[in-house]
Computed example of a mutant assay.
Amino acid sequence: MNVLCSPDRQECTLINFYNNTSFWGCNNVISINMDHPSILSDVWKISVENTPLTLEDVEIIRLRILIDNSVVVVYVNEKQYATVRVYLGLEDGKGVFICSGRGESELISLDFWQVKNIWDLT
Rank of each mutant, 00 (worst) to 15 (best):
C26T: 10
V86K: 01
W24R: 13
Y87A: 12
I67N: 06
K79G: 06
V48L: 07
Y75H: 10
S105G: 15
N69M: 06
K45A: 03
S105H: 12
L88Y: 05
S41F: 08
I32H: 00
N16Y: 15
T51P: 02
H36S: 15
V58F: 14
W44F: 10
E104H: 12
M34C: 14
L110H: 08
E78T: 13
R9V: 07
L107A: 01
S105F: 12
D111H: 13
S70E: 13
V73T: 15
L90A: 11
P37R: 03
N16D: 15
I39W: 04
L63S: 04
R62Q: 10
V76S: 06
G89T: 05
T83H: 07
N77Q: 08
R64T: 14
N50F: 00
I32A: 01
V58R: 10
V84D: 05
C12I: 12
G103D: 01
F17H: 08
L63Y: 09
S38F: 00
I15H: 01
S47T: 14
N69Q: 09
W113D: 15
V29T: 02
R85V: 12
S38G: 02
N69A: 13
S70C: 14
N20S: 13
K45M: 03
R102M: 11
Y87Q: 11
N77I: 06
S38H: 02
D111A: 15
H36T: 11
G89I: 04
E11Q: 05
H36W: 08
E59I: 04
T51I: 03
G95Y: 04
S31L: 02
V76G: 06
N33F: 03
P37L: 05
Y18D: 00
A82F: 04
G25L: 02
N33K: 07
L90W: 05
C12R: 11
V71Y: 09
H36E: 09
I67T: 09
E59S: 09
I39D: 07
E59Q: 14
I65C: 02
I65W: 00
T21S: 13
G89M: 07
I61E: 01
F112S: 14
P52Q: 03
M34F: 04
L63H: 06
N28R: 07
V84N: 05
L40M: 09
V74R: 00
L40T: 07
D8A: 14
L90S: 07
V29Q: 00
Y18K: 00
M34L: 15
L55K: 02
D92F: 04
N69F: 08
R64N: 13
N19Y: 08
N27A: 15
G95C: 04
K45L: 05
W24L: 06
T51G: 03
D68T: 14
I61M: 06
I108E: 15
S109L: 13
L14M: 08
F97W: 09
N19E: 03
I30G: 00
F112A: 14
G93E: 03
Y81E: 11
V96S: 07
E104Y: 13
T83W: 08
K94T: 10
G25V: 01
Q80H: 05
E49I: 09
C26N: 14
S47P: 06
V58G: 15
S105E: 11
F97V: 13
V58W: 11
F23S: 05
I39H: 05
H36R: 12
T51M: 09
G93T: 10
C12W: 06
M34T: 12
E91F: 13
C99N: 13
I67F: 05
L14Q: 08
V73K: 11
N33A: 11
I108V: 15
I15P: 00
G101K: 09
V48C: 11
